[in-house]
Every structure is written in C-alpha cells, then in structure tokens.
Write a protein that binds this DNA or RNA. Structure first.
Lengths: 138, 138
DNA sequence: TTGACTGCAAATGCTTTGCACCATT
DNA sequence: AATGGTGCAAAGCATTTGCAGTCAA
C-alpha cells in the first residue's frame, strides 16, 4: 500500500486531505515498525514542526474507526501502537528486546473460526499475541 | 481454588494477610465474571467501607506480579479486568452484550508452540481473544 | 518491635475536548 | 461560503505515589 492509496481511501471515506494528514499517512505507510502515537508525533514534527499531538491522536483515531489502521495494545508497554491494515497477521513479541515479529498461519485461522462457530458465534475480530524469549541466543 | 488457598499462596509469597486483602481475595475467588478494578472496589466497599481504591490497585498489582491473577485488557473497554489464575484458557467476547465466554483448545496450544518454535522463540506467554456476534439470535 | 500495609490526597501520564482560527472542497 | 480540520491549552480519567499513621508477624 502506498501513501497515495491510503490518501485515496481517506478521501473516499469523506476526509479532507490536509497537510498534517498527508504527513501522518506517509509516516504510517513507510513505518517498518509499530509506532506509538508519540512515535508518529515525533516523526511528524521532523517534517512539519507545527503539527500538534492532538491532531495525531485525532487522525489515528479516525483511521482506526475507518479500519485503515490497526491499533495494538501489547501487554509489554503502556502505549497503543499502530500499523496500516494490510494482510491479516499476528504478532510475536520478544520479551527481551521488545522486537515484534509478524506471522501468519492458516491453521490458526481455521481453528479460530471453528471455535467461534462451536461456541455459537460469528467471528468478527481476533487478537493473537505470542510473547517469548529467543531460543539459543548465541 | 478457595479463598483459603489463595490466602496461603499470598502468605507463602511473603505477603501479610491483612483485612483488606482478605476481602479482595475473597471477591476474586468468588467472582464469576472478569471484574475491573472499579468492580472489585465497589464489591469490597460493601463489606468494608474503609477500603480504598489505592489498596485495590496495589493488591491487584501484587497478585498480578505473583502470577496469582491474570490481567486482561480486552479491546472492548478501557478498564483492565482481572481473574484468578486457574486452568489455562482463552476468551471470546460477545461484541453486542460484552459477555465473556471462556474456552480451551488443545489444537491452539499445539499450534502456538509450533509457531513460536519455528520463529526461533521459546513461548512464555500468549494472548488470544476472539470477538464475535451471536449466531442466529432469535 | 518493625517493616509492610493502608487511606488519603496529590501527582502522573496518556488521551480527549472546547474554542477560536484556518483550509479544503 | 460552508464544513471540517487544526493548534493550543485545559480538562478527563485511570492509575500511581508520597506520606504519616497502623497493623500483622
């Protein structure tokens, strides 16, 4: 997903494409990590010092509502972390370094659907996070 | 697990068994839901009006550190929710009623261990939450 | 006795909001 | 022109903490 794609989705959703939003969208699309609101704010200020924290919060909130970003709250730290919605995946958090590894698993997808159905529910969403320590770290 | 069991675990861990703690432990053991700090506080006040919110926070924090309770942060609401640690299980949250259904699955346990190992990690902890809507609600 | 525990109130820290001004459409 | 967006500062809220008094061991 490019920044242009994301901008278009926002426009389609009825949002005005302002300068602060363009900066924030670009930061999100290019982030290789899972930045916190504070992180996004710091990066945004480098490009436009006038951008305020409030705008970052409001923009991330809107994007989350629209489903264009995912908001994570890893039990690791206190801060919410964001990433642009793309292919469905889950996270493994390295308890020592805080590093986040993404993974997918068709097996998990199948089982969670099955479990929800067995319980009498239609699965709408799901959160799976693994927390671990690196093996034979040498 | 009875309140006595839990009290003993706290004593073994070196905690002093005070009146406020006894009340809180009893509330947790008998809770059939997943009470928030506020919930525990409200229930505690019914038995001893002098118990303070700070003590509830401190006690739940200690119990969490000792691994005697689990702290959950469902994406549903803002409040942390607690439950006494017992058999390992996961949760399905009813998006409409907020009801929480517990479930276990050996398949999930096997797969998550396998995934962690494949990624080069020793699994220490894991969070799996399903969010759904009740099927054919009639 | 004494270190741990408690209630209280103040302090924190992340997030939200009211408001007046400004920019996109 | 109209509506939605922005920065700023103040307000909110869940949670934490300093402190002096209290209590379990």
């Amino acid at each position: 997903m490019t920044a242009i794609d994301l901008e278009q989705k926002c426009i389609d959703a009825g949002l005005k494409m302002t300068a602060p939003r363009k900066v924030i969208l670009d930061i999100l699309v290019h982030a290789k990590d899972h930045p916190s609101v504070e992180d996004v704010y710091e990066r945004a200020k480098e490009r436009d010092a006038s951008i305020s924290m409030a705008t970052v919060y409001r923009t991330l909130g809107l994007l989350d509502e629209l489903g264009l970003v995912f908001r994570h709250e890893f039990s690791d730290d206190q801060h919410a972390r964001y990433e642009v919605s793309s292919e469905h995946h889950h996270h493994l958090i390295d308890l020592e370094s805080g590093k986040i590894v993404e993974f997918q698993s068709q097996e998990i997808e199948d089982i969670k659907l099955k479990i929800a159905e067995e319980l009498g529910y239609e699965l709408v969403e799901c959160r799976l996070e693994l927390y671990g320590k690196k093996l034979n770290a040498k």
